[in-house]
Simulated assay, not measured.
Amino acid sequence: MSSGYTKSILVAGVGQKPKKGDSVTVHCTGMGKNRDLNQKFWSTKDPGQEPFTFTIGEGKVIPAWDEGVLTMQKGEKAVITAQPHYAYGARGFPAWGIMPNSVLKFEIELLSFGPSKIKASHILVKHEKSRRLASWKDENGVEIKKRSVADAHAILNGYLNEIKISQDKKATFAAIASKHSDCSSGPRNQGDLGWFGRGDMQKGFEKGAFALQVGEISEVVNSGSGSHIIMRTG
């Protein structure tokens, strides 16, 4: 264990541990406001907050997190106590009431982890609530403006059924994307979006894509652009 932090496990996790470069998502409550380790300065469970996602092992968070969370398993809850040089050091974090050279305590739950970037293809069907009511095959949005969200879902579920019964799902997905997707990636790249990381895509799309394993195809997911089915390819 590093001399910069200690870890005490509250609830054991299961399975493998994250590796450097993975995207990890945690719940966390930080204690140590005004040098009082019983006083909270921040929590992902506070109103308006949500689980925190970061790329581990790349210096994007304090060292106690970068090193400590690498030792955790999925579902594990632990208390990590960070010495000042493994937390915010001499500068502190005044906005949160963290004084210079403060020892801090974090109760962390490792919710999930996986690659920080994935590769995926998609089929997009726009509808009347899409943020841009036009596409490469409907430049004035004549059909899109008449299409409800339910209509878009029905169209995509039809494509999904066709893909599921196909002997070559990847080829069928690509063919449908090329002809029918409202995204220009359809005719240009058979729906292939290439590699992307968290924060690169709209939230609904990102959540659906990162939940998939390589080769898996999603059910219908929604984003500001419209409705999609997604196939993870890398």
Rank of each mutant, 00 (worst) to 15 (best):
S2N: 15
G4W: 05
K7M: 06
L10H: 06
A12F: 07
V14T: 15
Q16Y: 08
P18S: 05
P18D: 04
K20Y: 01
G21M: 10
T25R: 07
M31E: 10
G32V: 14
N34G: 14
L37W: 00
N38R: 07
F41M: 13
F41S: 10
K45Q: 09
Q49G: 00
E50L: 03
G59Q: 11
V61H: 14
I62T: 08
W65Q: 08
E67T: 09
A78C: 09
A82R: 10
A82P: 09
A82V: 08
H85A: 05
A90K: 12
R91A: 03
N101K: 11
E107Q: 03
E109N: 05
L111I: 13
S112T: 00
G114L: 12
S116H: 05
I123R: 08
L124I: 04
K126E: 00
L133A: 14
L133V: 15
N140L: 15
I144P: 12
K145A: 04
I155G: 01
Y159W: 07
L160D: 02
I163D: 06
K164Y: 05
I176A: 01
C183F: 00
S184A: 08
P187F: 06
N189C: 11
N189Y: 14
L193T: 06
G204C: 03
A211K: 02
E216C: 04
I217G: 10
E219T: 11
V221G: 02
N222K: 12
S223G: 04
M231Q: 02
